[in-house]
């Protein structure tokens, strides 16, 4: 049984063409799934199906093997935490602390548990010092963290992040990646995230979906997806620098083995150089 599964999911916004067309998406337990796609590919629309905000026009979505109904939608939303692209839409309470407490409060937890969860979530995101601040005084990166803290305070099993790195500075991106890989070790939470910044993907993802114009055009492991250079180009995406460079070197007859992350590439180049000297 998969945590999230969609079968031939289609969705049309009223009065316009198909936003999603025959999506078959699977999220297994304890996975890091990247959804790649250019602007307007349908990533956000797909994500909004994962917790029942949008209902499929046709096809189905199963959460832990069950369709989303009025009766279980609360359970589903507790199970799947979504952080939208624009943090401003998501932070609606007057202070950071109150905003993070919003989810737990609505789950009907007692006050002590709420306090504990809020502290925990702020601690995980490293923003304890922002607790009493008002949201409109926060920077973009801080708002993003608050929004993520708001989602993890509900202790979901699947965390869905829509463009989590958009608008973050390099340090912010680095911290976020660290946090995503820590989650895997600490809680076994499945993370699904969308991005069009392909260079980040090999570092954290273990499975990739590529979307274009509402369809899934490719899927597979990092190596499988990033070897399809032409396809990625045709959907307005790019191949990360390391595989791109290595591929071009290979074509010029230099024996370097393929690598996707910084560490792999470093190793591959060291080995290639050892062979020469």
């Amino acid at each position: 049984m998969h945590l999230i599964e969609t079968r031939d999911l289609c969705y049309s916004y009223s009065g316009s063409s198909r936003a999603l067309d025959g999506i078959n998406f699977i999220a297994p337990r304890n996975a890091r799934i990247a959804v790649l796609g250019s602007n307007g590919a349908g990533k956000s629309t797909l994500f909004k199906h994962f917790n029942g905000i949008f209902k499929p026009t046709s096809g189905s979505i199963l959460i832990r093997g069950e369709p989303i109904t009025k009766q279980n939608v609360r359970e589903v939303r507790k199970f799947v935490g979504i952080v939208f692209q624009n943090a401003d839409d998501q932070i609606f309470a007057p202070t950071v602390e109150l905003d993070v407490a919003f989810g737990p409060t609505n789950l009907g937890l007692d006050e002590e548990t709420i306090h504990h969860r809020v502290r925990e979530a702020l601690h995980i995101m490293g923003i304890e010092d922002l607790a009493g601040r008002v949201p409109h005084h926060l920077s973009g990166g801080e708002k993003k963290r608050v929004a993520i803290a708001g989602a993890i305070a509900m202790e979901p099993e699947v965390l869905v992040l829509d463009e989590p790195t958009a608008g973050l500075d390099p340090k912010g991106i680095h911290d976020l990646l660290g946090f995503i890989s820590d989650l895997k070790k600490s809680s076994g939470m499945t993370v699904i995230f969308s991005t069009h910044d392909v260079s980040l993907v090999p570092e954290i993802a273990d499975y990739i979906y590529v979307m274009s114009k509402g369809r899934i055009v490719a899927q597979g492991t990092v190596a499988e997806v990033f070897s399809q250079t032409e396809l990625l180009k045709s959907v307005r995406l790019d191949v990360p620098h390391y595989p791109k460079l290595i591929k071009s070197l290979q074509e010029k007859g230099i024996p370097v083995s393929m690598a996707f992350t910084f560490e792999e590439a470093e190793k591959a180049f060291l080995e290639a150089f050892k062979g020469r000297s």
Partner: peptide
């Protein structure tokens, strides 16, 4: 805003801590 609130299981409660 409505979507964001729904996504966090809104049932008519706002935390008032502090």
């Amino acid at each position: 805003l409505v979507q964001a609130m729904d996504a966090r299981c809104y049932t008519g409660k706002f935390a008032v801590l502090g």
